[in-house]
Each structure stands twice: as structure tokens, then as C-alpha cells.
Simulated scan of single mutants.
Amino acid sequence: MERLREQLEGVVWRFRTGSPWRDMPADHDIWTTAYQRVVQWCDSEVISVGVILRSLG
């Protein structure tokens, strides 16, 4: 469960900063893992692209 939290924090960091996935700090897990998690969440409709775009403000 701790890795999931790190991945979620990485996703939040990525969309908050607008930085490329590859620039994600290592303490938020490996960037490819966090990226794949977002893809899974979008595919399963856990999160929508609209939510992500709204979070960018």
C-alpha cells in the first residue's frame, strides 16, 4: 500500500508542476511505474482525463 501512496504522490507532483514524467523525484517511485498507474486508472475510468485537465487549473 505504501508504494501506491508513493505513486499517487508522484502523479500529483507531475500534474502540479507540469514537469515531464522523467523529472519526477525518486522518492515518488520510479516514473514509469507512476505513469503506468495513471494509464491504468484512466483505462478503468477510476480517474478521467477531464479530472486531470481540471487539476492543471
Rank of each mutant, 00 (worst) to 15 (best):
Q7A: 05
G18M: 10
G10W: 00
W21I: 02
S44T: 12
R5T: 12
G10A: 06
V38A: 06
E9Y: 09
W31H: 12
P25S: 07
H28Q: 08
W21Q: 05
E6H: 07
T32D: 11
F15V: 10
W31F: 12
V38E: 03
E6M: 11
V11Q: 02
D29S: 15
G10Q: 00
T33S: 09
A26T: 05
A26N: 08
P25H: 04
R22W: 02
G18V: 11
E9W: 08
V38T: 13
V39S: 10
F15A: 10
M24Q: 04
S44C: 11
H28R: 12
D29Y: 02
D23Q: 06
R22K: 09
Q36N: 15
V38F: 06
G18Y: 06
L8D: 07
D23H: 04
R16S: 14
P20V: 05
M24N: 00
W31A: 03
A34P: 01
S19R: 10
Y35S: 12
W31M: 01
L4G: 08
T32P: 03
E9S: 09
L8M: 11
E6K: 10
L4S: 13
W31Q: 03
D43F: 12
G10N: 01
F15H: 09
D23C: 05
R14W: 03
D23G: 01
Q40L: 14
T32S: 14
S19P: 01
W41K: 09
H28V: 01
